[in-house]
């Protein structure tokens, strides 16, 4: 009887990782068993920490379509989980999955956790696009602190589409040969002036 219990326990232990990963059929369908086994504890930890699982699943699926090995996929998912956790700490527990993903990217690009917190304070809800803009600017060569400062200056004044336009303008100036930090500074000054004038409080009012 005792031996039977041990056999059952061993059987459960052996199947637990697979059951955990199998909770998302996409992973079971696309990953080999070794990757699934290695990935399960990472996903379980993320679930326990109440992190969004979908970005992690997508990162694993991305690795699968790019024929990455198990170790690389697991490392990528683990790194993203860590960054999502840092982003949530900075942005607050009510953050959306999209905000956390954008925050994680911004952190990886060189933004600090305190920067993310400033975005939340100045914008309130909806910091996905501003944080993505920071990542884009850094990718274009703007130093991280300059990118953060530029987007922070706009975040309370500009709509998301205006921030996207700002980012494109900076990237275009850079492509035309402007130093990235100077391009960001020039564009943000112009944008702040323009958006400040368009702020309802600054428009003439009827007596």
């Amino acid at each position: 009887m005792r031996q039977a219990r041990w056999l059952i326990a061993l059987g459960l232990t052996a199947t637990l990782p697979r059951l955990g990963a199998a909770q998302d059929p996409r992973l079971e369908r696309r990953l080999d068993s070794a990757t699934l086994v290695a990935l399960t504890p990472v996903l379980d930890s993320a679930r326990a920490a109440d992190l969004p699982l979908e970005p992690l699943v997508q990162r694993a699926l991305e690795g699968a379509i790019k024929h990455a090995g198990a170790a690389r996929i697991v490392a990528a998912v683990r790194l993203l989980a860590t960054e999502l956790g840092q982003a949530r700490t900075a942005l607050g527990p009510g953050s959306t999955s999209a905000e956390l993903v954008a925050g994680a990217s911004a952190l990886r690009a060189g933004a600090r956790a305190t920067d993310l917190a400033q975005f939340r304070r100045r914008r309130g809800a909806g910091v996905t696009v501003p944080l993505a803009a920071v990542t884009d600017l850094v990718t274009s060569g703007v130093p991280p602190d300059s990118a953060v400062a530029a987007v922070l200056a706009l975040v309370a004044l500009a709509r998301d589409d205006q921030i996207v336009d700002f980012r494109r303008a900076v990237e275009r100036d850079i492509a035309l040969g402007a130093p990235p930090a100077a391009a960001a500074a020039v564009r943000v000054n112009a944008a702040v002036r323009e958006f400040s004038q368009n702020t309802p409080g600054n428009q003439p009012r009827k007596p």
Binding site: V129, A133, T135
Partner: peptide, 15 residues
């Protein structure tokens, strides 16, 4: 962006 799998990935922002 460089992805974690030795290649590159495009990032698209939908405002």
């Amino acid at each position: 962006l460089k992805d974690e799998f030795g290649g590159e990935v495009g990032v698209l922002v939908v405002p």
